[in-house]
Design a protein around this nucleic acid. Structure first.
Length: 650
RNA sequence: GCCGAAAUAGCUCAGGGGCAGAGCAACUGAUUCGUAAUCAGUAGGUCCCCGGUUCAAUCCCGGGUUUCGGCUCCA
């Protein structure tokens, strides 16, 4: 029997007879414990099943339930099992695909009842979940076989699985001759693998929800039923995950928006928020901050009209490309919908740039605008503050010469870095490069992409390249932030635009006394105020730093005889620029402290006889820290220090 | 826009073809208290809207609105 030499991750080598399965190799040559815990293996960097054989010298790595990679494999197993369970319970349902996603997996089914697509009810989901876990409990082995593509087509045709046939045919069209099937028990799916050794390895399957989806995300194709689920190797994992979910739910900005009294929605204006006095303080604080930052960074702020006529939208291309998302307004003379409410600031900025003649010395011109914008988003797309119909952006357009692009990109990323640092958001970038339908020659794109790339690399921003994802008029960088519990949000953007100046016939006079086209840079850091606020609420879990907190402190007296002092203190702190309230409800101090603690008040200022005597108050930090009696001046100094906006510069 | 679910007091939610329910919040009174719930009382409702079935609809049926979870799109 020929021998093979297997290299383990620690560099050690083991000899074994060629043709041995990985499972047996692990059991006989490494240890039964690992053999039992193993889920899948990696041979020479390729993920494979444990049933595969070792036929040549190779490096081998074993993944167990301790590895996150194994959980992904197990969730893929779980998707198969859910599909099996569905077909057991609802014969005639066709399967499509069932990938692993960031949080669990889903499987899309084609299910007809009386000839119509029919969703799964919550009761049916429970049944499916139960059946799926029964299949897990039976611990059925997964079996991998390689078959000729033609045989696979026959197999799925025989089962009436037309979606599988379609997928197999697509793969055959790409040149595949054979493909792999995975079976557990009688249930067979066509799948790349790898899978775990048996269904029992999966642990526990939890189904989360079901929803509609289209075959290949195409509205003209079949309506499918998607079942979302997740699995864990043990109950403990599931419970821990449920805890994290509860934590995220507690941070939900829609819930905190209500609890902290920040904003409301009303059916008369779907997707448009009413901001309460507190919410408005928060909104204004961000707005003022961004005004100051941009002003200090060489921007000028302008205001432009809200409604423009059709001519502008035709020129900008919105009339053709974006009309469905615009609110149109009737012209009372013509009776036609000849006006549109602006969904973006760029066209009006371009018009503005067109006023007067510009010298090359005027560039770069950085126009900042926080005007309100409206987009008629699809009804089903609305959600809290993250997806609204009325919002404002911290928008700006930079008009510059081509040789200034690099400097401007640097300048922007530095500003963005300061802003995200100041609120504690980590970020990474996505660089989208030239698409197939690009405008302009390759040399132009080389320079543009090079400038963006160079900036990201010099500033040491982690980034991923998205080849071909840029707009036809220029490449862009999108910035993705991670909040305090690791969720990701796309916020800032820097987009180069080589066509806007052409369309709007914008020019400047160069040092050669000839007219040139400026390049336009579209850029934003918050993205939209609404969305940014939603993210900050969830990021801080409603516990805002003092500079953002709508109310910074609330005064509580121990007895009514301190009320006069309390009012004096409130006035004095307000005079010094702090946002302080006085809780004069007829309740015990303990009760008020409890209420204020729940409402995430940064400071409670307690006033008893001692504090009246000392002409001050005893601040209590959110969370319970008692700072003891302090004078008004000392409190003002403390608040002043803590309400300073972090600079954010590295 | 499409698929599904939900809508009951300010909030969280229970209920159910025949006078509409709780807790918290609010209000009034008493209490004047030293860092997470003082006591008692009062008030609060088009049970989302419009139709239909019924002697009777908040409940059943149809249509609509909004919200939520997805699809799609995006900031």
């Amino acid at each position: 029997m020929a021998q093979v030499s297997i290299t383990l991750p620690d560099g050690s080598k083991k000899e074994a007879e060629a043709g041995i399965s990985i499972a047996d190799f692990v059991k006989n040559h490494i240890g039964p414990g690992l053999a039992k815990a193993a889920v899948f293996a990696r041979i020479n960097g390729q993920d494979v099943d444990l049933s595969r054989t070792l036929d040549a010298d190779a490096s081998l790595q074993i993944f167990t339930s301790k590895n996150p990679e194994a959980l992904e494999v197990a969730r893929h197993d779980a998707a198969h099992i859910v599909a099996d369970a569905v077909q057991q319970l609802f014969p005639g349902t066709q399967v499509t695909i069932g990938p692993v996603i960031e949080e669990g997996f889903y499987y899309d089914f084609y299910r007809l009842k009386d000839g119509k697509p029919s969703p799964f009810t919550p009761e049916e989901l429970e049944q499916i979940e139960k059946r799926a876990n029964e299949i897990v409990a039976r611990d059925v082995p997964f079996k991998r076989t390689e078959v000729l593509a033609a045989d696979a087509v026959k197999l799925f045709e025989g089962k009436g699985e037309k979606f599988k046939v379609e997928i197999v045919n697509d793969i055959v069209a790409k040149g595949a001759k054979t493909l792999t099937l995975y079976a557990h028990g009688d249930w067979i799916d066509f799948c790349l693998g790898p899978h775990g050794p048996s269904t029992g390895k999966i642990g526990v399957i939890k189904l989360l929800s079901s929803s509609g989806a289209y075959w290949r995300a195409d509205q003209t194709r079949e309506q499918l039923q998607r079942i979302y689920g997740i699995s864990f190797f043990d109950k403990k994992g599931l419970e821990a995950w449920q805890k994290v979910r509860e934590e995220a739910a507690k941070r939900d900005h829609r819930r905190l928006g209500r609890e902290l009294d920040l904003f409301h929605f009303h059916p008369v204006a779907p997707g448009s928020a009413f901001w309460t006095p507190r919410g408005t303080v928060l909104y204004q604080a961000l707005s003022d901050w961004m005004r100051r930052l941009t002003r200090e960074d060489g921007y000028v702020e302008i205001k432009t009209p809200l409604i423009f006529n059709k001519q502008l939208w035709m020129k900008s291309g919105h009339w053709d490309k974006y009309q469905d998302n615009m609110f149109l307004v009737k012209d009372s003379d013509s009776g036609e919908l000849d006006f549109g409410v602006k969904p973006m600031n760029c066209p009006s900025h371009h018009i503005y740039f067109g006023f007067g003649k510009h010298s090359y010395r005027d560039l770069p011109m950085r126009l900042h605008t926080q005007d309100v914008l409206h987009r008629n988003e699809a009804a089903g797309a609305l959600g809290g503050l993250t997806r609204v119909r009325q919002f404002a952006q911290d928008d700006a357009h930079i008009y510059c010469r081509e040789d200034q692009i690099s400097d401007e990109v640097f300048r922007f990323v530095k500003l963005l870095d300061r802003v995200y640092n100041a609120v504690g958001l980590k970020y990474e970038a996505k660089l989208s490069t030239r698409p197939a339908n690009k405008l302009g020659d390759d040399a132009l794109w080389d320079r543009a992409e090079g400038a963006l790339k160079n900036c990201l690399e010099t500033m040491k921003v982690a980034y991923e390249v998205k080849p071909g994802d840029g707009a036809f008029y220029g490449p862009k960088i999108d910035f993705v932030v991670s909040d305090s519990i690791g969720r990701k949000w796309q916020l800032g953007t820097m987009q180069l635009d080589y066509i806007a100046a052409e369309r709007f016939d914008l020019s400047y006079v160069g040092d050669d006394n000839k007219e040139h086209r400026p390049v336009v840079l579209h850029r934003a850091i918050f993205g939209s105020f609404e969305r940014f606020i939603a993210i900050l609420i969830e990021h801080f879990a409603g516990n805002f730093p003092l500079w953002l907190s709508p109310v910074q402190a609330t005064i509580v007296t121990i007895a009514d005889r301190q009320v006069d002092h309390a009012r004096k203190l409130q006035q004095e702190l307000a005079r010094r620029g702090f946002r302080v309230e006085f809780d004069d409800r007829g309740l015990s101090m303990q009760k008020k402290i409890r209420d204020l603690e729940i409402s995430k008040m940064p400071y409670v200022l307690v006033i008893g006889d001692r504090e009246v005597e000392a002409n001050g108050a005893a601040p209590r930090r959110h969370g319970g820290e008692d700072l003891k009696t302090m004078s008004i001046d000392a409190i003002a100094e403390l608040f002043g220090k803590e309400s300073r906006i972090p600079d954010g510069s590295a």
